[in-house]
Nucleic acid binder design. Structure first.
Lengths: 340, 340
DNA sequence: CTGTTAGCGCGTTCAG
DNA sequence: CTGAACGCGCTAACAG
């Protein structure tokens, strides 16, 4: 315990340099027998090189950072899992940080990352555009590579990242509903400040436009991605006696909330109203009736993000700075059959 | 970018030692004006001390490790969140590792931890007793403090950790059922190799003993904590035409599986059979009918575990080596009223 | 109140 | 094929 390269050098009657060579497999240039002797002593002393000391000279810590809003939100564990798995596969460890969407917390985490000299950061947080921009600037100023996950930044130059084509996903869902005859579709949006929900809204609108259907904006409401908001908004709609025959929600949690609201009024799903969610969290398949939803390849998103990050860290070029993953409309029991 | 303590020392016309003093708030002993000057230069250069270099001398990295089986399992995000929150509060970052219950992976993670010289480890994994023992030994050999989370180790000397009193939880649930008149209670156990599920089984038995009721062991079955196993086991029971009036499951997922099996046969819950789960994952309150369950203070378990770990790291004594958290029977819609 | 010196544990020239 | 010397960025005595 606590043995250093110097200890094992002394015991092997060689210099630290030689030991360092065999540790790093630069053993071409080290006699086979001395090498074996060194290896044996390393084994005996249970010696582990200090990545701290090594990092001080190599400038590499083999640590990555991942910032997400909240691991408790069923979407992010999948993402984190994908990132962690591929990080581990490449010999990196992952610092996980929950920011609660607080720009201040994110800022502090990033500063900690910088002081720890980690090799790269994955950002899956920040609802505030200005916040993420200042974070990006900070990261750039200290030359730490980073990758955006899920939440993109519109307008400014494109940073490297992996995203879902949210607009396409919302378009598919809405288009299905429209083609199936619905004319009054409720849209329960996520917080419109978050780019992802904004794009989902865009897809909703675009599908209406392409199908030549007018949107009744009294059916469009902004929720907060929580189950309760979906429930309350739909209840309010029912009380206001607004007519509608379908609901498209900005995420699964709100869709499930909508389901509950509908069921508590005895409204039949999907006979009377069809419901579609977004995300495909595990819960969506367990709920009754099982929720039709726009599925994201969440795990893969984490994988891709980590891969990109590691590639830039290791100096291999990346094929493309922005990867857009394709969502897929997953039919279950809250919708009737696709037409045709 | 990349400025060091030497740079700012030179610019301030002082020695590195002085700079170090103000950085570490040992400024009692530094002139107010030199202090201000140094602070200003630090600000201008956007200087951040390297925790790598600092750690090399202080032997502290302010990093902790957390090993869990799978962040995708709804129980662990809560735990991780509690641990991360309190780690952050105390100025530590958290390495998160998913082991998939693989002792080999755990071993590798711990070796990485050692090389990174992290300050402490939280272990919430390892179904294998021999695996966890060798991990503990490894950690001890390099003098890294650790804390056991959730999964305990029976027999050997008690390591410091925070656990749930699983036996008490199972006892409460079973006792309620028994006191409410049930005589044929199904027990869907988790994998009996995992100590936690073993203790839940103990509680189940103990309650029967205390109530003077014989257990029909054909109603006791071992599942794997997955929803599907709960479903299949109960289906098999029904097909075998065994009589029972209540089901107690080793966790919520299996309880929900049992619910599905019952509902698909048109069996009324809780009128015909009462069902109780264990864990209180979020899903258990969203399912229909909402599941009565033995609630664990999961988040708090993460908090407590991190607190204990940090206390031993920082050399403050810990009041008790083993903390047992109390479960609580949470009545919802899959049970009738408690008697009395 | 401040500077000098000496490492922490390692990788990396450059000689030999 | 191997060793000596230096430096990574910082803290910690010990002097002054």
């Amino acid at each position: 315990m606590g043995s250093t390269i110097k200890d094992i050098a002394r015991l092997a009657n060689v210099s630290k340099a030689t030991v360092s060579r065999v540790i790093n497999n630069k053993s071409e240039g080290v006699g086979e027998e001395t090498k074996q002797k060194i290896l044996r002593i390393i084994e005996e002393l249970n010696y582990r090189p200090s990545l701290l000391a090594r990092g001080l000279v190599t400038k590499r810590t083999h640590s990555l950072g991942l910032i997400i809003p909240d691991i408790t939100n069923p979407f992010f564990p999948q993402l984190a899992r994908g990132a962690e798995d591929t990080a581990a596969k490449h010999g990196y460890s992952l610092f996980l940080c929950n920011s609660d969407n607080s720009p201040e917390k994110e800022q502090r985490y990033i500063e900690a990352f910088i002081e720890k000299r980690i090799d790269g950061v994955m950002l899956a947080s920040s609802i505030s555009k200005s916040a993420i921009q200042s974070q990006i600037q900070l990261l750039k100023s200290v030359d730490i590579p980073f990758t955006l996950l899920d939440r993109y930044l519109e307008g400014s130059e494109p940073e490297t990242g992996v995203f879902l084509d949210n607009q396409a996903g919302a378009y598919q869902a809405t288009d299905y509903l429209l083609k199936n005859g619905h004319r009054r579709i409720v849209f329960v949006a996520g917080p419109l400040g978050v780019m992802t929900s904004w794009y989902r809204f865009q897809g909703f609108q675009m599908a209406h436009y392409d199908n030549g259907v007018e949107i009744d904006y009294s059916l469009v409401m902004e929720g907060d991605y929580q189950l309760s908001s979906g429930k309350e908004l739909v209840e309010r709609l029912i009380e206001a006696e607004l007519e509608f025959t379908a609901i498209f929600a900005g995420n699964d949690m709100m869709a499930i909330g909508a389901l509950k609201a509908l069921q508590s009024r005895g409204i039949k799903i999907p006979e009377t109203v069809e419901v579609i969610g977004f995300d495909n969290i595990e819960l969506s398949s367990l709920v009754e009736p099982a929720l039709t939803t726009v599925a994201q390849p969440t795990y893969e998103m984490g994988v891709k993000g980590a891969q990109m990050l590691i590639r830039v860290i290791e100096g291999e070029g990346i094929p493309e700075r922005n990867v857009y993953l394709k969502p897929e409309l997953l039919f279950r029991a809250t919708t009737r059959h696709p037409v045709g």
